[in-house]
Amino acid sequence: MSELRHKQVGVAGLYDDPSALVRAAVEVRRAGYTRWDCHTPYPVHGLDTAMGIPESPVGGIGLLAGFAGLGTAIGLTGWLSAWHYPIHIGGKPLFSWQAFVPIYFELFVLFAGLTVMGLVFALGRLGRWHSPLHDSGIMPEVTCDRFAIVLEASDPNYSEDAARALLAQTGCRDIRPLIEYEEEDDAFL
């Protein structure tokens, strides 16, 4: 590891216990950090509140997209069946909306589902394969059974000593530098 050139981009504190992580997250937020994050193997109850993360808009936007899908379905079926390509069957009304209800429902679900999936990728910032957690060797621990708080050096409040002191004060016994390799090409593999 050490033969590759790297720079320090922050400090990470690792915890064995999720409740210790939640308590520490409260301390970090109170200390005024803005560019920091917690990494956990599974969603930890109460961590959002501790970190001060606002309610995710995924649900609301997803529902709105569902209604957009409903509108699309009403427009699609109505316009095609009643105006653009009217099919007369047994004298039934052309805009027979009752018969289109299955399509309304399915497009509601489809639009909402696709939007929700897209939002997880966009807001959760997925699709970025590179992470200093890989370079620091912390990733295998947080995807298995440990919990990490990462304080980034780009934070205006950041200073190496203060960050370490803060983590130590929260009871963290495993504090490590967060490093990032200069040459990125081989770092991922």
């Binding site: 193997p41 969603p43 961590l47 993360i53 995710s56 649900g59 959760g124 947080v142």
Partner: peptide, 18 residues
Amino acid sequence: GWSGSNRAWTHYEKAYLM
């Protein structure tokens, strides 16, 4: 690129519920 970030988990959990 999943890193277990809680800022991703919060959206993830909501999406799962949705």
